[in-house]
Amino acid sequence: MKPSNVLLLPGWQDSGPQHWQSLWGERYGYLRVTQHEWMRPLRGDWIARLEEVLLTRDEPAVLVAHSLGCMLAVAWAAHSRNTHRVKAALLVAPGDTERPDLRELLASWSPIPLQALPFPSVMVASRDDPYCEFERARLFAYAWGSQLIDYGPCGHINADSGLASWPEGHVLLQDLMKD
């Protein structure tokens, strides 16, 4: 699989330079799906952008989503007729956009689709993620048909979690790319 067919889906406000997604993009040449509006994300706009990028791929892509990027992946899969263009997805630290504090800020991201994804997926969730309680992450994984990996207490699994380039996560991605 070409590195350009691994699509990085950052969350709200994008992933900063020390985030593992950014480090993977630099190190491995994976393609970041850039959104037109990172600060006030609209679900429909983000879905349209992902669809646009996927339609330019010459082979099925693997999605690497973090936080709101996870919600993008599942919302896109729930609405697209082109789900065959995705081989698999690594979903990391989903942001629960139905929480009262986030629902107000991200109104277009509710409701969260709770149907099985039409491609294999692995979800990595933390026990102390400030944006998604672990039991909600477990519910999402079950509904989406994702293999759930309990990552213990690791915050939002981002740059603040001290993961650097997160080699363990990259091993998970490589396993998904093999299947």
Rank of each mutant, 00 (worst) to 15 (best):
E133N: 11
S108L: 13
S121E: 14
V86L: 10
R103N: 08
P120R: 15
A116R: 15
L114Y: 08
F119N: 07
D129W: 05
D101W: 00
L114A: 13
L117N: 03
L114P: 09
L117T: 05
G95S: 09
E98M: 12
W144N: 08
L91A: 05
A125T: 04
M123P: 00
L102V: 08
Q115P: 00
D101H: 06
L139A: 14
S121R: 14
I112H: 04
P100L: 02
P94I: 03
L90G: 03
E133F: 01
S108H: 10
A141S: 05
D101S: 10
D96W: 00
S121I: 12
A89E: 05
A93I: 04
L105V: 08
W144R: 06
L102W: 01
L114E: 15
Y142I: 08
Q115W: 10
P118Q: 11
F119V: 12
T97A: 12
A137W: 04
W109Y: 10
A89H: 01
L139R: 13
A93K: 06
D129N: 03
E135Y: 06
A107I: 11
A143T: 01
T97P: 14
P120A: 15
D129T: 02
P111E: 13
S121N: 12
R136W: 07
L106G: 09
P118S: 12
E135A: 03
R136I: 01
P94Y: 00
Y131T: 09
M123N: 04
V92M: 10
L114G: 10
A88E: 07
F140L: 08
L114V: 15
S110L: 13
V92C: 06
E133T: 04
A143E: 11
L105E: 08
P120F: 08
K87Y: 00
W144K: 04
K87P: 06
D96C: 07
E104N: 11
A141M: 05
L105T: 05
C132L: 07
S110K: 15
P94C: 03
F119M: 11
L90V: 08
G95P: 00
F140T: 06
E135N: 06
F119P: 07
P130D: 01
C132V: 03
A93C: 06
R99H: 00
L102R: 00
V86R: 01
V92W: 05
Y131M: 10
R85N: 08
V124Q: 02
L139Y: 09
P94V: 03
A93H: 01
L105Q: 09
P113E: 15
Q115S: 15
A88I: 01
E104A: 14
D128P: 02
V122Q: 14
R136N: 02
A141L: 02
Y142A: 12
L106I: 09
R103S: 12
L90F: 09
A143Q: 12
S110Y: 14
S110M: 13
L102C: 09
I112L: 14
R85C: 09
P130N: 01
L139Q: 13
F119T: 04
L114I: 00
V86P: 03
P100W: 01
A116T: 14
L105I: 09
C132Q: 06
D96N: 07
P118H: 11
R136S: 07
F119R: 11
Y142M: 10
K87R: 14
S121H: 11
P118T: 09
P118W: 09
R127K: 02
P118L: 12
T97N: 12
F140K: 02
R85I: 09
